[in-house]
Every structure is written in structure tokens, then in C-alpha cells.
Design a protein around this nucleic acid. Structure first.
Lengths: 109, 109
DNA sequence: CTCAGCTATTCGGTGTTGCTAAGTACAGGT
DNA sequence: ACCTGTACTTAGCAACACCGAATAGCTGAG
């Protein structure tokens, strides 16, 4: 999509992934594919994996290694309580920003 | 506000400033104050100035030096045609992202 | 059986961005 | 003279998404 999206994703991609995980546990490859389906056509694979490592280190998710039928074992991530809390905080921050931008869009016309 | 906002601002702050400039020309100090009023309580001054330099170098704004009554001369920035075009692109990208997040927020519950 | 192709993860290096912190510069009040 | 408020600049830092390559396992075509 371009540089604009790339920059905007900084800080939101993390929330997006957490939101996806809040639905059900998932592993990296799956998440990447899902994002691609949902319109984030050019999200780099490496980006997701790096992000997953990060949120794991922060203790927002639990990890379980699950053997795959067609490849190396999957690392399945699931949102834990701390992650759920963080996700709520994320939504609050997002709302704040979205509200401000909505106002600017109306007023600034 | 915290790290979350800081990261989210990456990529959006630029649009925010352009949106402000689309209302009327303004200078850095003024923009910073305005943002603070509008709830971005801890935006760093240096951040805005650096951003303004950037968008000037990209040719999105025109600059005019205007003497001030109470300090060094102001650099007044005004959105030009290219900037207006870019701002529209920004809004399109923002809408895309906001839509995706809105969906996630509903579905992921 | 080997090789291509899909699944799945890891890693090193890059560019952009916002923050921190300090410094420069000018006006007016005490 | 000194401090406060206005106004801009600069250098160095950390976080994040990207790119490209490497690794690893499995399956099916040749």
C-alpha cells in the first residue's frame, strides 16, 4: 500500500495482532495470512514474527509449540490476562487518537 | 500519555499537522500549543519542528518568515497544492486503517 | 531419490519517526 | 542585569516496520 500505511502501522499493528489473538489463539504464519486477507496486502512476514517475540517477552501472550502436519512446529500464541488488559489500554488510546483525528477532519475542511 | 500514544503518533502526527495547516497557516510554536490544548499533552516541541522541516523538504508546505513582536522571527507554514493532495492521501489511508480496526474491535470481542 | 514448492520461523541490517535534552535568540518586566 | 515567555535548532537515542536471506520440515512431481 505504501509508506503511509507502513508508518501508521507503527504502534497499531501490535494492537491489531492482539485483537486478532483475543478472538482465538493463532500462530505467526496464520496471522500473516489473515492480515493479508483483510487488506493489509503487503505486511512483511518478518514483521509479524518480530512483533510476536516482542509481545511474548512483555508477557502479554502465552506460547505453546504445536506440531504441524506440513512443516516445522507452530508457535501458537494466546492472549493472557495481562494481554487482555493491555489490549483494553490499546483501545482507549486508539479511541483518543481516532476522536482527535475525526474532529480535525471535520473542522479542518 | 505514555508509550502507546507515542508509537501510534508515528505516521499520524504528520497528517495531524497537515490537517491543522489545512485550516490556516501556522508556525511551529503555535502548532505545538494547539496540540497541547487538544489533548496531546506531552508532544515534544522538538518533534514538531523536526516534522515541519521534513514536510518542507518534501515540498508539502510553503514557508514565510514573519517577524514576531516577542521573540525570534516565526516560520509560518502554509499547505500548498502538493500538501493538500498528500493530505487527502493521508485521509484515505487513515480511513482504511480505522475501518479495519473498527471491524476488529467489533468482531474480536 | 532428489528437487521444487509450500509451510513456518529466525535473524541481521536499514530507514523513518518521535523523544530527550541542550542550546541559541529576542523581547519585556522586575 | 536577570528571569520569564516566545520561537527555533540540533545531536543523539529508542522503537518499530521493512527487506533479504537463512533455516527447517513436509509433500508431491520428475
Amino acid at each position: 500500500m505504501g509508506k503511509l500505511v507502513t508508518e501508521m502501522l507503527k504502534g497499531t499493528l501490535e494492537g491489531i495482532v492482539l485483537a486478532i489473538l483475543s478472538g482465538r489463539p493463532a500462530y505467526g504464519y496464520e496471522i500473516t495470512a489473515q492480515l493479508r486477507d483483510q487488506g493489509f496486502s503487503d505486511i512483511a512476514e518478518g514483521t509479524i514474527y518480530a512483533l510476536l517475540v516482542r509481545i511474548e517477552q512483555r508477557g502479554l501472550v502465552d506460547v505453546e509449540k504445536v506440531p504441524s502436519e506440513k512443516g516445522p512446529p507452530r508457535k501458537v500464541y494466546s492472549l493472557n490476562d495481562q494481554g487482555r488488559e493491555y489490549l483494553e489500554e490499546f483501545w482507549r488510546t486508539w479511541s483518543f487518537l481516532a476522536d482527535r483525528l475525526e474532529q480535525l477532519r471535520k473542522g479542518g475542511k
